[in-house]
Nucleic acid binder design. Sequence first.
DNA 1: GGGGATCATGTACATTTGTTCACAACAATG
DNA 2: CATTGTTGTGAACAAATGTACATGATCCCC
Lengths: 304, 304
Amino acid sequence: MLLGRVARMYYEHGLTHQEIADTLGVSRIRVTRLLAEARETGVVEIIVHVEESLFADDERDLAAAFGLRQVWISPSVADEQKAARAFASVGAEALAAKLEPDAVVALGLSTAVALVAEEFPDHPLAASFVPVAGSVSGLVNGANPHELALAFARRTNGRAFHLPAPLLAASPEAAAASLADPGVRGVLELAARADTLVAGIGGTARGQGLLLSSLGDAERERLLADGAVGDLAGRFFDADGDAVHGALDARVVGLGLDELRAIPNRLGIARGETKLAALRTALESGLVNLLVTDSDTAKALLAD
Amino acid sequence: MLLGRVARMYYEHGLTHQEIADTLGVSRIRVTRLLAEARETGVVEIIVHVEESLFADDERDLAAAFGLRQVWISPSVADEQKAARAFASVGAEALAAKLEPDAVVALGLSTAVALVAEEFPDHPLAASFVPVAGSVSGLVNGANPHELALAFARRTNGRAFHLPAPLLAASPEAAAASLADPGVRGVLELAARADTLVAGIGGTARGQGLLLSSLGDAERERLLADGAVGDLAGRFFDADGDAVHGALDARVVGLGLDELRAIPNRLGIARGETKLAALRTALESGLVNLLVTDSDTAKALLAD
DNA sequence: GGGGATCATGTACATTTGTTCACAACAATG
DNA sequence: CATTGTTGTGAACAAATGTACATGATCCCC
């Protein structure tokens, strides 16, 4: 077990990579890689014994300001990749905290949620993961609700459901036909009874979010004219947090805004300046009652 | 709790010192130091999940070759300071493994044992620590048996005993007088009944060990002429592992070699080329039945 | 027995981390 | 009130670590 020896020499005896390489007769780079592997595989476990969360005060303030049940904040850093990972791991922590064994989790389609799935720890909870809307067509590498449900299910030893329908049907009639399908309806009914919703919150900037980016400019303009300020799991809402019913809304195959709002735990996952307006509305109108965001966004939300 | 936030940002979110410093508005150096503090104070705990020890095969071979009950080997590295610390921490591990609550531990005076005391983990065992010989006069920073016993006692919430006598009396008569003192005798009798002896093994090179370095060259020559190859806790032995009785031996205030040998667990702690001959004899003659050494010394001992 | 992919490896470099030093602020001591 | 030690600080440097890329091995499929 070379890996274990390397890990112990490094973490228990404080030798450098080079020293370990010399005593073991391997290259330094190999030691570096073995150590990375040891951390990834859990051979090396690092525990920080701190009860309080990183931004405890901001989390408390945000919860109070918007009447949220709980808030989690990840650290903002310049390095976007790192910030995204930190954000996702805080999201995973938040979801894990709310998840009970055999829970039913409704999943909104969102790149943020997809990242959370990646970071989700391996804990056998046997939960069920159910998409709240159909899939986008084409390759959207890993952000399709079905893959997403699968990723969560794999990590929790749970079950993943598939909604065999497009997120956006070609016409209102086609959407209605999809919804009439027993398989589709069954899954959506299950999603509606979920304990917990996990969804991203999207803004209305051009090209933002999986739904908007699949629309033309004309349709987007129409949405804005109808008062849309953002979307939750594929459903656009206006400045009061009410659903924007229109041509687009009728083509979406998924739970409606009121059905989403009926789910007890509604965990919103969003960060970034472009999402601020949507986020503010979603929080004020109670669309979500649990929030994961980053510290910059939190500060902006609190700066009122 | 700045410390905790820094630790979590670093270990849970993988930010760099600089990134943490920027988000928290402190200097990078401060972050570096806080992280070091977090590791030292145990706020950050690093566990390596590996059952097998570092040099399991050599340990097994050495135990078999010399009929030892158990052997612990620390990694040898060029950096002497680091090697010493690794050695000491393995020594601490070994002693901790053999220590039962309320045990009586006899302590041989040795810099190696002193280092072990430094590395000994804080575990409340309520053991008693008893010197097997008197103190050296003058300042030998931290290697006096009394300080040594205190250091162990502090970390185990145990009791430290003091032997109010010099290691080396001015004359055989003075030594006898010391031994006649009820306080001294009481402590030595307790030491003789110890469950475990922890002692360094010294060679006979000039200036080596606390005892030899306090002698003149003439006395050392005399010792060699009498056949001494090394010492255990202040008592010199010859190539057969038998006591070297002579002018020096009569002046030492402490347990005799036979009394040391009567202690059930005898943990020898020694490493280095200069100690090889002494170590080999001590092992072959059963002066110790438990051994802590480093990998270079282990290899040399096995190369027969 | 060739391609062609995948994997492991090491070199060279970039980044990150740790350490030494000099200085300043403060507290204890004469 | 000077003085000595103690502590905390950051700048500058030295060391350690991580990464991108190039190379060579190995396997697999045709």
